[in-house]
Design a protein around this nucleic acid. Structure first.
Lengths: 227, 227
DNA sequence: ACAATGCTTCGGCTAGCATCGAAGTATGAA
DNA sequence: TTCATACTTCGATGCTAGCCGAAGCATTGT
């Protein structure tokens, strides 16, 4: 037996993938319900409940009852900072999750990242656009070329209204699953909106998965000249 | 399921009590043999061997072969700092394996944290340095001022060689016993080295305690203008 | 009062992992 | 070469902990 703080207790709490996912979700400082966190971790409500109880007993999270909801949030910024440090170390050691969790290879295929699309298809899309000089990549920044502007107008994407907003039209976003960039920004959102509107794909409820129909994926590939 | 750094992997490595004990032992920055670490954790040699392999694969420790011995040590101070942060959180939440032996007060007074000093004296030191504008604190980062540079040169600390290394010269590290920051980084190491070289203090064998002599502590306080 | 929602608790199943004995490999000494 | 030391790998075992279905509370809405 050794004296001192029991780091194994804290670490083992974070060490379970389901709990780590829930804690990661709470790192934005917001409070979430048990159901939301269960979906985030890909487990059932009752499993999430036992995990949350353990985290609370361990002092990593706090619970706030409000009506029939129970909101969970990180105890304080000390917990958040620790998680951030661990992410830094994990990233530095190359421990980046490419392998998806229990049962969701669909997430790697295509998923929502804020309001645009990420995943294999999204990375292929940006590769194709750059390859045909419709978008130029300058380091981390992307910019639409003239031919690119004409190209996207074909899809009924209103570039003028995008240009007037403060938001950058083209932006690259690093894909953790691919370690490659995909298209974000106003244009990224417009492409995803168009994908929905054309009926090529739909959001799977409660997840970040973008599920293409068989004909939808073919149409998407043809529209954007993917291989 | 989620993309991003895999903190669960790192945390689960630390989360096993046997591994946590071994890592804690290595927090003094020294390298230990597998047999020593097995004794430290209270497990057999072969169990320790499998644990050490996992830690090495995970990038938390490094192995150095020397004759028929194999020495294991923490990969770098990033790992040490993470462990210290976890101790801080564990202590703050009351997760302390209380076997408050006679060593405990000495440990809180001054101890080794990877390669620099932690504990009450170390926290006082950083407070003093910041109070006299020798070091400026910007959030979590520390930086040495011009007058600070001149100040440390007095002690024969070679700042140029510190600056050339990739390691940050000034860095803050959270102290588990004090819940306050102390000085880490290249300068933190240099100060500890100077403390040893000046004969102000010595390491107590088999512990992380830094034991000052009576005159040594007086000299240390005078040298760095502590109260 | 009744139904619906949100969450927790219980019971049983299963997989993964820590653990150790024993055998195998590498290095150094006699 | 032969023995001793240091460590790793293999194989088997036993326990822990995550997981889910079902049932049980609690709160809100109708």
């Amino acid at each position: 037996m050794k004296e001192g703080p029991d780091i194994a207790l804290i670490a083992s709490l974070i060490g379970d993938p389901a709990r780590a996912n829930m804690l990661t979700a709470m790192m934005d400082g917001k409070a979430y319900t048990a159901t939301e966190l269960a979906a985030e971790a890909g487990i059932t409500q009752q499993t999430a409940s036992t995990h949350l109880k353990k985290l609370e007993t361990g002092g990593l999270i706090l619970q706030r009852k409000q009506g029939r909801h129970r909101y969970f949030a990180l105890s304080d910024d000390q917990v958040g900072n620790l998680l951030e440090s661990m992410m830094g170390l994990a990233a530095a050691r190359g421990h980046v999750r490419t392998r998806t969790g229990p049962k969701d290879p669909a997430l790697r295929r295509a998923r929502v990242c804020y309001d645009h699309m990420a995943g294999e298809l999204a990375v292929s899309l940006l590769d194709s656009l750059i390859g045909r000089d419709l978008i130029v990549s300058e380091g981390e920044d992307l910019s639409l070329t003239d031919s690119g502007g004409a190209y996207f107008s074909r899809f009924g994407i209103d570039l003028d209204s995008l240009n007037t907003s403060r938001r950058p039209v083209c932006k690259s976003c690093l894909d953790w699953s691919m370690r490659r960039s995909h298209l974000a920004g106003g244009l990224g959102k417009a492409v995803l909106d168009h994908t929905y509107a054309a009926g090529w794909a739909r959001r799977v409820d409660g997840t970040r998965i973008v599920e293409f129909t068989r004909t939808g994926e073919t149409a998407f590939r043809k529209a954007f000249d993917l291989i």
